[in-house]
Computed example of a mutant assay.
Amino acid sequence: MNNKTNNLDTVYQRIWEAIVAHKLLPGTRLKEEDLSETFGLSRGFVRKLLLQLSYHKLVNLVPNSGAFVAEPSPEEARDIFQARRLIEAELVRELASKCTVREKKLLLEHLEREHQAIEQGEQSLRIRLSGEFHLLIGKLANKPVLTSFLHEIIPRSSLIVALYQDAGARKGKARHSGLSCSEHNALLDAIAGHHVDKAVQLMIDHLNEIEAQLQLEPAAEEDVNLKNIFAEL
């Protein structure tokens, strides 16, 4: 491994990307020895990395058990999406008010990569690019403080989607992928056209749609008829 790979920020970013792409799912155990071997790091370096991931709520450190990819609660999920609506409404408002030809080109190039990932069936890449589209809006809006908050909560959003996406949404992944990309296209059109209010509403609607696909309410309890169950055995 070269020095760049061993850099804490670089390894953190690779784990961040794996979470965003749903390659590391909620509850996955992150063994120190495996991380040490994978990235060519010392155990002390790995512990420092896990502490940083824990600080950003991406990993839970359980005494005498180890480190696990976080499993956000339904309450946290609602809070995260509320925060995203507040932050991203302001970011898209700012960008739509001043979007240049160059910024439109950057957004369009990114969306073309999303379309290509969908066409090639690269679901993990498509998920990662979708999150990065939102971060690109923040970057182009030139609001570094708000964008830093977004950089922290988008991986947590990805964990939430992986954990709570309902069965119907899972079965219709291809359709939802296309829908999400279509919504990004509409956002780009509104931003590039300087339609500020429309862009803000589209962003809010887009985030509402993602949240609506989640099963955050507990399943209704069903009465269990023990006689019927054991009569069939």
Rank of each mutant, 00 (worst) to 15 (best):
H194T: 04
A190S: 07
L202I: 08
A199F: 02
H184N: 10
G193P: 04
H195N: 15
N185F: 08
L188P: 00
S182D: 11
V196C: 04
V196F: 09
L187C: 12
G178N: 07
H184G: 05
L179D: 12
L187M: 12
N185C: 15
H184W: 03
H176F: 11
K198Q: 13
S177P: 01
C181V: 10
Q201A: 07
D189T: 11
K198G: 01
C181S: 09
L187H: 07
G193A: 14
K198N: 03
S177D: 11
A190C: 02
V196A: 07
A186F: 05
D197V: 04
Q201R: 11
D189M: 14
L188I: 15
V200Q: 05
S182E: 13
V200M: 09
H194S: 10
I191P: 00
L188S: 00
S180L: 03
H195T: 12
G193L: 11
G193E: 06
G178Q: 13
G193Q: 12
E183D: 12
E183S: 12
A190I: 02
D197A: 15
S177L: 15
H184S: 02
H194V: 04
H176M: 08
G178K: 14
A186Q: 09
S182R: 15
H195Y: 06
L188V: 11
Q201F: 06
H194G: 05
G178D: 02
V196D: 01
L202S: 02
A199R: 03
V196G: 01
V200D: 03
A190V: 03
R175S: 08
H184L: 08
L188K: 00
E183R: 13
L188H: 00
V196W: 09
M203L: 06
V196R: 13
L179K: 13
S180Q: 09
E183Y: 03
A192I: 08
S180V: 05
K198L: 12
H176K: 12
R175D: 09
S182M: 15
M203Y: 02
Q201N: 06
D189V: 10
R175C: 02
E183T: 04
A199I: 08
L187Q: 13
A190Q: 03
G178A: 07
L187P: 06
L202K: 00
G193V: 11
H184R: 11
H195P: 02
L202A: 00
A199L: 06
S180R: 15
I191N: 05
H184Y: 06
L187F: 03
G193C: 01
L188N: 01
K198P: 01
A174Q: 09
L202P: 00
M203A: 10
C181K: 05
S182F: 14
R175G: 10
A199V: 04
A186I: 14
A190E: 01
K198E: 14
L187N: 05
H176Q: 07
E183W: 03
G178Y: 02
A174D: 10
A174M: 05
V200W: 04
L179V: 09
H194Y: 07
H195S: 11
A199P: 00
